[in-house]
Structures are given as structure tokens and as C-alpha cells.
Amino acid sequence: MKLFSKIFNSGRASDPGALTRITRTEVLEGFAIPGIINNMQYHFTNLQVYSDGLIYCWEMVDLAMFKQKLDQGWVVTAIPDGAAISIFGLGHWYIEQGVWLHTKATLYQYVYALVKQLNPALENLQNCHGSSTRKVGNINVAKHSIPDAKPFYLDNPGTVFPDRIHGAQFHCFYRDTDTKTYLAQLSLYESGRIEITNLPGQKVFSFEDIRELVDKKTITTTLDPGETVTILNLGSFKIVSGAGVDILDKLNELTDKFRELNGQENSITKCARIFEAYKATPTLQLKNELKEAYEAVPEHQRMFVGNMDTKDYEVRQVIYGDSIKKEWQEAYGFPYPYADMPKPVDE
């Protein structure tokens, strides 16, 4: 007590010295629910609702700001007939005969109810005070970073402290036993456990089951004109036209992620590694290895073998030559902006 009094009751400011700066990481549970973002086109997305009252709708907002996003038309509850729905990693379809379940008011009430389910006392809710950014010097930075949301299941759920087993998530279409086609979420775990959700009832499979489900077209990326798609708790619509990624590419993407979850190199990482090796030592052997690695990447993911700017243009220039420059100019209308890739020294 004497030491406490000496430090805190001395009547003068105390110098704490050079203290160690620390941070802590806290796990917050939430729900991923189907939603639509209206940003030049209509994007299907998972709205992420967390127990502290934050909602991710392409930025982290509190409940009051989420209501503003609804009022401003950033988050919408319907897609007009004749417009298209874009689903990242899956495809793009024009729709008609949409039947939508929510108004702005009921979607807000649904999200609020989920927060309350996660946090019954509504304790310690986040308040962004009307802005998702803060000023650091002359730069606006996000108050809350983009969450790396991952699905999980509980291992040994009957124990006091069950382990959370995290996985990876994908969108797919699932033709259920009720004859309806659902826009579903597929969660994949390192054990090979597969969960299909956003259905009337969760389905659980093993990784070995996936090929059979694909062959039976139970899991698909291809929709027929006139086929009705149901998005649970959001609405339904009929397909007019459009296209999805090739189902075999999607299957390869799942296989890639399964390898990654089990500590193995995926096809994108392998391609990027060989590309760096080629740039350091451009040989014909590495060029051939790069071609093989690049063409093993699922087609809809090949843009990720480079950085955000170059995408896969530099890799393709190495493999396929200067025709890539012409392709760029025809697509964008100005000269190819990236550095020439070295030719193999032994070609």
C-alpha cells in the first residue's frame, strides 16, 4: 500500500518510464448472411454480423451506419428484373421474376435480431460515431480492419473448452432434395469435412464425396435458362442468361484449398514461386515449368498469380510472348504499361 500511495497519491505526475507496448487479439463470433451490394452492378455477398454490433458490408460499420447504408442504397434488398447478379468466384447471370423477402426495415430488424442473439444484453456495442475512418496525419484510415471471416465448427462440443476448427468458404449452387436450387455456401476443413449451408438444413459430407456430388450435378456452377434460384432469407429469381466458372475449375479450386489447409503449396503459390525464380534466372526449363504451373491454376484464379496491378499479364508474356502486349492494347486502348520480361538466356 505504501508503494501504491507513493506512485498514485504523490500529488505530482509520475513518469512511468519506457513501458512495453502490447496488443491483444479477441475472437468475436458472428453470422454470415446473404446480402446484395449495389456498386455499379449488383453483387451477391456475405454480410458479416458480429456480436459487438459491427457489420461488414464491404466496410465495417455499426448498426446506425448499417441503417444509413440501406437508406443510401449501398446495401439493397432486391435486384430489378432484367439486371444481373454477380457472384464472386462463381459467375454472372441476368435474372427475371424476382421475389424478394425483405424491405430496408425488415433487413435492419433481422440484422439487429442477430446481434441480440449473439449478445443478448447488447453490451459493449461498437459506436463508429458516423464514420468508418479516422484521421492519422493527413490520411484517412479505417477504424476497423477488414475481417478475415472463416467458418468454423466445434470439435468435442460437449467439453468445457471445445476447439474451434476453422476452414475456408466458397459459393456454389446446390440442388437439394426438395427440387429447389439454392445459392449455398460450402465450407471446407483440413480434415476433409465439407459443410453446405444457406439451405433449409445443413448438409455434411467428406471431401471424397465432392466429385460424386459434382457428377450428379447436385453441386454445380452452371444454371439453365428458366431455372429458379433460391437465396435463403433473401429471395428467389429465374435465370435468363449468363455463365458460371467451369465446374472442373471450381473442383480444382477446392482441391487447391484442401492442399493449402493441410500445409501444402497451392497452384497459385507454386506459379508465383516459379515466376520469381524465372525472373532471377531466365532459363528455358523454368519457362516450361512456369507454363505448366500457370495452366494448372484454375482459370478463374489465374489473375492472382501476379500482384493487383499486373495480375497475370507478366506471367503470360513470359509463356506466350509479345502477343500479350497486343491483347492489352486491344482491351484497354493504350500501350502495354509493364516492363518487358526477360527471354530465356538459353533459348
Rank of each mutant, 00 (worst) to 15 (best):
1 M>K: 13
6 K>N: 15
7 I>L: 15
11 G>T: 06
13 A>Y: 01
23 T>Y: 09
29 E>D: 12
34 P>G: 02
36 I>W: 08
37 I>K: 06
39 N>I: 15
44 F>P: 02
51 S>E: 12
56 Y>G: 01
57 C>A: 15
58 W>S: 13
61 V>Y: 03
61 V>D: 03
65 M>D: 08
66 F>D: 10
68 Q>C: 08
70 L>G: 10
77 T>L: 07
78 A>P: 03
78 A>V: 00
80 P>F: 03
82 G>F: 09
84 A>Y: 08
90 L>S: 14
105 A>W: 02
114 L>Q: 12
115 V>W: 04
119 N>F: 11
120 P>S: 00
122 L>N: 09
124 N>T: 11
127 N>L: 06
132 S>D: 09
139 I>L: 14
141 V>K: 09
143 K>N: 09
144 H>Q: 11
145 S>K: 10
149 A>I: 09
151 P>M: 00
155 D>Q: 11
162 P>T: 07
162 P>L: 12
168 A>E: 06
169 Q>M: 08
171 H>G: 00
172 C>I: 14
191 S>N: 12
204 V>C: 09
208 E>H: 13
211 R>F: 12
213 L>E: 03
214 V>N: 07
229 V>T: 13
230 T>C: 15
230 T>N: 08
231 I>V: 15
232 L>Q: 10
232 L>H: 10
232 L>W: 00
233 N>Q: 15
237 F>H: 01
243 A>N: 07
249 D>H: 14
254 L>D: 05
262 N>Q: 15
263 G>T: 03
263 G>D: 04
265 E>S: 05
265 E>N: 08
269 T>W: 06
270 K>A: 14
275 F>H: 06
290 L>F: 08
296 A>R: 03
307 N>A: 12
326 K>H: 10
330 E>V: 01
333 G>Q: 12
333 G>T: 04
344 P>S: 10
345 V>W: 00
